[in-house]
Amino acid sequence: MRLAAFGGIYSNHLALAAVLEDLRQGGSDLAWCLGDLGGFGPHPDRAVAALRSSGIPTLRGNMDDSVGHARGDCDCGYTDPRDNAFAQRSYDYTLAHTSPEHRAWMRDLPECHRLEAGGRRVLLCHGSPRRVNEFLWESACSDAFLEWMCAEHGADLLLCSHTGLHWHRALPSGRHVVNVGTIGRPANDGRTEVWYARVELEDGVRVDFRSVAYDHESLAREMESEALPPEFVETIRTGWWTTCLENLPAKERRAGRF
């Protein structure tokens, strides 16, 4: 089985369109969206409508839960006050521009999903299986911790998102953890493309990450016309994170510009 998974659309409807086109050409048997449809980008209804039309099954991320229930903030899990201030602006804009019908749909999305493929138990989640807004950074998780998490939640292959940075770890036990990245903002690598994951489950587990280019300049102009923070626009244009990065571990932080 060839499984594709992406997360964190963050209202980037142009990146979503490019990813959907890439999926059509890529020959995956199944695709999943791991949640966080809104936030950051412009016109959230556009991405939600496109995703729903695609028929791709979707998990409920923290932003979807918060926007769906109008909980007051995105529950992103940041602790830094500047990060939280930007997250609040994202949430407020997204809530104000998401239709009641889409919000009702978000409320009913599942938080996790299980499937079996290639003789393996696959668990899909947004942050982690135990907490929707948990950040699983590559450099901040020991093998022992990931082994425990997989064992505790009955997974041979765990797929997650939420952090915005994609990575894959083959664990000593033969289990695998894949953070599929996000397609709503670039991966803090100075490139404007966005990333998702393809996993082949046949005679083992093979993971490859796909980078997808899209019309990021058009998105940047849409963001400007919606008066979204210039810091967000800069990230779309440069590929470097300017906000919501204070909880990055040193290794990941060092790879970025700010």
Binding site: A140, S142, A144, F145, W148, M149
Partner: peptide, 8 residues
């Protein structure tokens, strides 16, 4: 602690 699945 690693035997108990510690993260860090």
């Amino acid at each position: 602690a690693l035997g108990m699945g510690v993260r860090e």
